[in-house]
Design a protein around this nucleic acid. Sequence first.
DNA 1: ACCTGAACACCGTTCAAGT
DNA 2: ACCTGAACACCGTTCAAGT
Lengths: 179, 179
Amino acid sequence: MARADSVRNRRNILDSTRELLAANGEQVGMDEIAAHAGVAVGTLYRHFPTKTDLIDAAMAELTSSLVELVAVAADRVEAGADPVEAMTGLLRTFVGLAAQDRAVKAAAEGLASDSLRELEERGWGQLQRIVDVAHAQGALHADITTADLALLVATAPTEAVPVESRERWIALAMRSVTA
Amino acid sequence: MARADSVRNRRNILDSTRELLAANGEQVGMDEIAAHAGVAVGTLYRHFPTKTDLIDAAMAELTSSLVELVAVAADRVEAGADPVEAMTGLLRTFVGLAAQDRAVKAAAEGLASDSLRELEERGWGQLQRIVDVAHAQGALHADITTADLALLVATAPTEAVPVESRERWIALAMRSVTA
DNA sequence: ACCTGAACACCGTTCAAGT
DNA sequence: ACCTGAACACCGTTCAAGT
C-alpha cells in the first residue's frame, strides 16, 4: 500500500504549502513545509522536482478556485445581475485575498508555469462574459476590454498598501473603466 | 591616507550596487558586488551592516534623483505648464524606470528605511504643488489627492507587465484621476 | 516504488589576522 | 582605522541506504 501513502503525502504537502505560503510568503523553507506535512525533505523532491514547481502546483489549485468565483459571477450576470457590481465585487474579493495571501498576487502576475497560464486564460474567458453584458448595457467605456481588467488585477495593491487605501484603489480602478 | 581609500570604496560600492541592482534585481550576491567594486566582502559589511542596508542606501540615492525630477516638473507647472501633461509625463518616466530597474519600484513601495521615507515625503510635497495647480484649473476630479497618486505609483506596472500594456495603464490611471 | 535524513552547494555574515 | 578572505550558518537540493 505504498501507493496510498504517496497520494496522501502529496495532498499533505500541497495543503501545507498553501497554508505556509499564505502565512509567511514565498520564503518558507522546504524543511518547514516537510515538517508541517509530516514527511522528510526528500519526499518533497520526489513529488516536485524543485521548490518553484511545488509553489506553482499549490498556486494552480488556488487559481482554480478563483476561476470558479469568476464563473459563478458570470452566471449571475447573465441571469440579470448588475455587471458593474459584479466586477467591483470580484475586484474587492481579489484585493482582499491578495492582501492576506501573497501567493494570490504572484499567481495573478503570472510568473506562472504553463498549466497556470492555461487556468488563467479560462478565468479571463469567464470574465469576458461579464464584460460583454456590461458593454451591452453601455456601462463601460467603449474601449475597455478584459485585457484592461487583467492590467488592473496585475497592478492591484498587495499587503504593502494599507487597508484604508485598498477600497480607494478599487474606486479609482472602477472609475477608470466605467462610462 | 586610509581615509581616502574608505571614501572611494564607499562610492564604488554604492555605484556597483546600483548598477548590479538595475541589471539583476535584488538577488545580486554580496560577493558579486564586492568583486565589481574591487573590494573584499568584509569591506561591504564595514560600510553597511547588512545587505538590506546597502540596498536601502543605493535606493535612497536613486529616490533622491526622482524627487528632483518632480521638483523640476512642479517648477514648470507653476510657471504655466499644463499640470495634467506634467503628471502624465512623470508617470511615464516612473513606469519606464520601474520597468528597467526593479529598485525603483521597490523604492516606491516604501519597504523603505526611515531616511528613504523622509525623502519620499519631500517628493510628495513637490507633487502637491502640481496637484494644487491642477485643481485650481478644475483639471482633476475634486476628490483627488496626492495620496491617490501615491496609490497609483505604488501599483504601477513592473517589468512583469509587457511594454505594450504599460502606456495603456498610464491612460487608465490618468482617466481615473482627471475630470 | 517510495521514504528517510545526512551530506553537499550556495550565499549572507562574521572575525582573526594583516597593513 | 581600514581591509582581507577563510570560516560559519542557513537553506535549497541530492543521493545512498532503508523499507
